[in-house]
Design a protein around this nucleic acid. Structure first.
Lengths: 241, 241
DNA sequence: CAAAAAAACGTATTTTGTACGTTTAAAGGT
DNA sequence: ACCTTTAAACGTACAAAATACGTTTTTTTG
């Protein structure tokens, strides 16, 4: 019954939890999407008591036989219908009083999804909606902090690798890519320098098609070269837009 | 009895743990120090059965009424006698099978300590020792991975802020500072460019004393200017040595 | 007192980032 | 048909930063 592994049974003070005590572990997902030039977040509103009407991140308990990151993937699949998306651990929130009434810690994960891929009906059936970051309502518990932390991780991540591709549709224009980075960094970028920089990475493949939704003239569509992108990652290059 | 908060009781699949099931939460600390030109790690060897002789990181269970990061601080205080040291969450390890026999997840933290500050007797009384990173023995469970991850976090952190100061004694020479960065990055740096760069930050205060332990000529000692260091952090400057 | 070694200072070159001008393609009004 | 407008696409000049490497200084030791 008593754990025996070296990982925990070593410090002098290794109390185990009493039989009637329990510590819950949950995971919450900060789901980012990009649409109409804005970074969006998938949040959901409880429709039944208790806490009906309160907005929060999507999440779930970690089951006893389940890896923590699998729990996050399960939540994402349940709500968006999507599999195999970018998902990374953000941070663990472990304040003893973070959830009133009982002890529960949450391992937050952030996900990036292509906003045109997800299962719209499934999302709505769960009471989940996309919110622009700026218009975000107050969220439950420490979820506001989770969002702030995930956003700052996303920003750092975006500097290290061309993460934008996870958030854009397969074909995209350079101005669209720029809009995404502007949304992530929350500042304007020079379109001429942005184009120069992004093309210098040699990970974009120019297509023959144009996208005319953004301007009269239209802009050429690009897709990214998965192979060269991989090389770039492995070289340890810093994207630094 | 059943948790009612919005944070967890929302997904369709919110199983709670059965009465006889329990999920343990521990914290493990990756404690870095710097001595004799090398990065060192504080690890400890169990001296009683079971698992006697196995090396592992220092750690402990998180108590039911205790913040997770407080648990890490408690462990550090217990083993090193040190308070108020640099401590940051690294990553949470949550594979269902990471610890054989029972379900336990671990929230890893990494700490940076001035190796001449710690309580030597206390450390030894706990069976803990400093090991150079390269000579590290095989550690228990997934602790090798924890060390690798923490090291990579330390590297990234070192690029963002002059973290070296946490690891050096109050007075140090520029060549010592360089040695530290060489140990962190695992590559050689040009001493002339290193000096130029580090002095350009204007956070070092030159003292009148010299340290003669490293060379015949001796090198001037410096301390860092806490105020200017703080300004530098707040300006969002990237250290980038 | 010369040789050795590392500290301390300096300069040249290359690379990268930043600022901003010009040309081009297509749409829409007159 | 042609002029205007708009954003895309391309290009150039300058500033800042990183890198490479030469020189001088200080001290110890043979």
């Amino acid at each position: 019954m008593t754990p025996s592994s070296a990982s925990v049974a070593h410090a002098s003070n290794n109390d185990f939890y009493a039989d009637n005590e329990k510590l819950y572990v949950a995971t919450d997902c900060i789901v980012f999407g990009f649409d109409e030039g804005d970074l969006k977040l998938l949040i959901f509103k409880r429709r039944v008591e208790p806490d009906s009407g309160i907005w929060s991140l999507i999440g779930s308990f970690v089951q006893l036989d389940e890896d923590v990151n699998d729990a996050a993937r399960r939540v994402l699949k349940e709500i968006t219908g999507l599999d195999e998306i970018f998902l990374e651990q953000s941070k663990t929130y472990g304040k003893a009083d973070r959830d009133p009434g009982y002890r529960c810690l949450s391992v937050a994960h952030y996900a990036l999804i292509r906003i045109d891929d997800y299962d719209k009906e499934l999302v709505e059936s769960h009471g989940a909606y996309w919110y622009t970051l700026k218009d975000l309502p107050k969220l439950a518990l420490d979820h506001d902090q989770m969002v702030a932390d995930a956003l700052s991780k996303l920003r750092r991540k975006a500097r290290q690798q061309p993460i934008g591709f996870e958030l854009l549709p397969e074909k995209f224009t350079i101005p669209q890519l720029q809009q995404l980075y502007e949304a992530i960094y929350q500042r304007e970028l020079d379109p001429r320098n942005f184009r120069k920089k992004v093309l210098s990475l040699k990970v974009l493949v120019k297509l023959e098609e144009k996208d005319k939704s953004g301007s009269k003239r239209g802009a050429f569509l690009y897709r990214f070269d998965a192979e060269k992108y991989q090389e770039l990652l492995e070289s340890g290059y810093n994207f630094e837009i």
